[in-house]
Design a binder for these strands. Structure first.
Length: 135
RNA sequence: AAAACGCUCCGUUCUGUCGCUGCAAAUUUUUGCAGAGGAAAGUCCGGGCAACACUGAGCCACCAUGCCACCUAACAGGUGGGCGUCGUGAAAGCGGCGACAACAAGUGCCACAGAAAACAACCGCCGGUCGCUGAGCGUAGUCGAAGCGAAGGGUAAGGGUGAAAACGGGAGGUAAGAGCUCCCGCAGCGUUUGGAAACACGCGUUGGGGUAAACUUCAUGGGUUGAAAGUUCAAAUAUACCGUCUGCUAAGUUGGGCUCGGGCAAUGACGGGGGGUCGAACGAUAGAGCUUGCAAGCGAUUGCAAGUCGAGAUAAAUGACAGAUUAAAACAGGACCCGGCUUAUGGGGGCGUUUUUCUU
RNA sequence: CGGGAUGUGGCGCAGUUGGUAGCGCGCGUCGUUCGGGACGACGAGGUCGCAAGUUCGAGUCUUGUUAUCCCGA
C-alpha cells in the first residue's frame, strides 16, 4: 500500500466533525487522544462512495501549546507517523461484508493534549499502538 | 590584535527516498516549475478596499496630537535644525536622552513638618504717640537717658521645617527695611539685527512659587463598522416579498446631543418570482512592488531609464529519515493588502568610537 | 481575525479629586470549657503581575510588556 495522504482522506466537513465529537468513542494513550466513529453496514456497501481508509482530523489545542510553531510541528509529526502506519486501519469491500474482518472505522480524530512538544521517536512509539488497539 | 559600546546587513546551503499546496503540460496518473518572516508576532498608529437609512453646514460633547522646517498617500513614523538635560573633556567639541504649546486667562491641589504652601504675616526688627517708673541736671521743670506696658502703624533682613519659602548674589540706601536704586544673573512682554522658522544676540519695560502623564485654554485632525466587511451562483423546503420611479404636506423617524438642510416611511405605477442552510466562485494577491544604474538633495526621500513577477491556502500546504559543510542549534508560521512603531532573537559579516597590549 | 475586561496577604474582594494598604474567611498564641466547637483577646503574613517614565512622592497617572478570562461563527 502506498503511503500518500491526499485530501480525500482528511475530514473537512463541519457536519461530520460535529457528529464525530458528539457520538464518537475515545481512547487515550501517552498524551494522545483518539476519537472515532464506526460506520453502519449499509453506508459502506455502496461501491461508488466506498472509502478504503477513514477520514481523519489532527488537532492540537491552543490551550496546551501556545505557539503556532509548536502546534504546526506537532501536527506535522502526527501526520507523518499516521501516513506511514495507516495501513493498520485499511479495509476492503470484501472484509466489510464478511462482518468483522478488518477495520470499520469511518472517521477519526487524533488529538494531542500535552504541553510537551514531542519528537519523532515519541510519536513513532505511541501512536501505532493506539491505532492497533482500536482496529 | 583583543574587549566594550553604537549603527547597519545576513538570518544556512546542497544531495537522495517518501509526503503536502498551487500552477502548467500531458493525460488518467505521471512530469516540470514555484512554495512563510525580519519580525509573518503584539494589534499600538496611519492608509487602501468594502458596507451602512453613508450626514451636507454650524455649535456642543468625546478622542487623539502638540518646539520649527522638510519627507511621505498618510501618520503618534522618518530626516535635518533649535532648545533643554545628562555623560565625557581644561576648553572647543563629541555622544546619549527628551509627551519640548500655554500655570504671566480662570479653577483645583501642594500630605507630614513648618510662622507661613500663596489676596501672606506667627515670632522678630523699627521709630512716633499715650501711660507707669525716674538715673541725672537745675533756685525753679509743661526737663528727662535707660527701662516696662498699651493701642495703632511701618517692614519682610533673620527664624529648628520642607521636595519647594514670596526673582537669586553683591553693594548702596534706610528709623528698620524693601527691585527702593545700581552691577551681574534669571524669566515674561515689546522691539532692532541675523535666520525660511523654531530661535539667538542687543535694547526697552515688567517681576510672576510649583503642578496641565490636574481640570482647563489655544491650535490641528477625526462619520461609524471591519474580510466573520461585502458580491455572485444555488438542489430540497416554505409562502413571504424585493428593485426602480413617483411622492415627501402634517405628525413620526434618521448622528453621542441641539439647530437648519437633506434622506426614509404612506399611496400609486412598472419590473423581478423573493429569502435562505450545506456547498461553490469572487473578494484574494501586479503592488504607494522588487532589482540595477544615473541624476537631485546635508539627509529622510524623490525623478528618470532598463530589467523582473517572487505563497495564495479555506479545518487550512514547507515535513520525516539518511548524508555532507567542524556543530545547524536563536526568536519564531502567512489568512485582505500596504507604510511605520514596539517587543523577541543564537551566531556571523561590515563600519565608527574608546581602552588595553604587541610590532615598527 | 476583530473587540473588551481583570491581575492587591493562603482564598474571595475593597481601595477617587496621587500623601503611612484595608475587610471577611483562613492561620498562630493565649483565655474560656471536663474536652471540642462557638465566642473573646493579641499577633504574623504584602516586590499591589513585571519594567520604564511623570511627580517631592505612584496601588492610583502615562507608556511598554506579560498572564488569565470573556464576547463576535
Amino acid at each position: 500500500m502506498n503511503a500518500t495522504f491526499p485530501k480525500s482522506e482528511r475530514l473537512c466537513s463541519k457536519n461530520c466533525i460535529d457528529e464525530l465529537f458528539a457520538n464518537g468513542e475515545a481512547r487515550r494513550s501517552g498524551g494522545f487522544t483518539v476519537k472515532y466513529l464506526r460506520s453502519h453496514m449499509d453506508e459502506t456497501v455502496g461501491a461508488e462512495n466506498f472509502q478504503p481508509l477513514p477520514k481523519i482530523l489532527i488537532s492540537v489545542p491552543k490551550r496546551f501549546q501556545k505557539r503556532a510553531v509548536d502546534r504546526n510541528r506537532t501536527k506535522r509529526l502526527i501526520r507523518e507517523v499516521y501516513r506511514k502506519h495507516k495501513h493498520l486501519l485499511a479495509r476492503t469491500p470484501v472484509s466489510t461484508l464478511l462482518n468483522g474482518m478488518g477495520s470499520n472505522i469511518y472517521s477519526l480524530a487524533i488529538i494531542y493534549a500535552s504541553s510537551k512538544v514531542p519528537d519523532y521517536a515519541f510519536v513513532e512509539e505511541h501512536l501505532p499502538k493506539l491505532l492497533e488497539k482500536i482496529k
